[in-house]
């Protein structure tokens, strides 16, 4: 359960930019108007600036040089615009994260990595590009932003359980702090009014096997994308690879070793193309 001190830290988090949710609402209408979208975005200066920084990133593969918000909305297409707006609105929370990382921007790098990898896996497994995967990937570790302070204070105790007693990092957080970054992240997403599928993906990203039966494809994809990034050391932190592997994932997706490795090759390529996304956090 979440104690008072933690609750206070959660309440001190800046609110999630309403602009992002509004964009997501408007864009879900198949007949959305470009002007409506531009009018929502342009009032948030930080998001507008970030959108413009990112829209010529090779990752989004536009053939035109985009220099205005209007052009971005016209040329990028629904999925890309959503991904860009979510990225633009989310990076501000990752400026400084204590506890888990020796480098300040590592959690952002990891989060972008998981978002990109979840797209690759969703395409491979479901043949679809749903921005729900991307958003959940960006936010899966949001709990660390708050819990980091507490991990920092109890670091020796946590590491003792992990290195000597066979705990996963998640289990050690739970034992020492009384909650873990996944559960806390789900609470934060709930406060921020994210839909259930995003909240569940965050809450269960290390243990999708514990979810109730139902729509669990996003949590499993995020789980796998997260594991791939941990294995590759992408935005690697002190928790490293100290998380449980779940064998079920292989049967769930019928994924061969070769396909997993090929996806990792694609991830590295995408990370290279997505430099503008990674750099966002430095501009905050």
């Amino acid at each position: 359960m979440i104690n008072d001190q933690l609750l206070k830290s959660v309440n001190n988090l800046p609110v999630f930019p309403a602009t992002v949710h509004r964009v997501s609402q408007v864009i879900s209408d198949p007949d959305f108007s470009v002007d409506d979208l531009v009018n929502i975005i342009k009032y948030d200066q930080s998001i507008t600036a970030n959108v413009l920084r990112m829209c010529n990133s090779p990752y989004f593969g536009t053939r035109y040089k985009i220099s205005s918000l209007r052009e971005a909305v016209i040329y990028l297409g629904r999925t890309n615009i959503l991904q860009i707006v979510y990225t633009a609105g989310t990076s501000r929370f990752y400026k400084r994260v204590r506890g888990y990382y020796w480098g300040a921007t590592k959690l952002w790098e990891h989060s972008v990595g998981v978002a990109l990898m979840s797209q690759i896996l969703a395409k491979k497994i479901y043949s679809c590009e749903d921005s729900g995967f991307f958003t959940a990937g960006l936010l899966h570790d949001i709990g660390k932003v708050v819990l980091g302070e507490f991990v920092y204070e109890s670091f020796q105790e946590i590491m003792h359980l992990v290195s000597r007693r066979g705990y996963s990092f998640l289990e050690a957080e739970q034992e020492i702090i009384g909650t873990n970054h996944a559960e806390l992240g789900g609470e934060i997403a709930s406060l921020w009014s994210f839909p259930k599928e995003t909240r569940d993906a965050i809450t269960y990203h290390h243990r999708p096997d514990l979810m109730e039966k139902g729509e669990d494809s996003i949590p499993w994809i995020i789980y796998l994308a997260d594991q791939a990034c941990m294995m590759m050391g992408i935005g690697g932190g002190v928790d490293s690879l100290a998380y449980r592997g779940l064998k079920e994932v292989v049967n769930k997706f019928n994924l061969r070793q070769r396909d997993f490795e090929k996806s990792i090759v694609l991830l590295l390529k995408d990370l290279d193309k997505a430099k503008e996304l990674l750099d966002l956090v430095k501009n905050e």
């Binding site: 294995m231 490293s240 690879l241 592997g245 064998k247 292989v250």
Partner: peptide
Amino acid sequence: GASIMDDMNYFRIG
């Protein structure tokens, strides 16, 4: 060559 915990049987990349 590190690996995920309990990483028997699948994706043993490390």
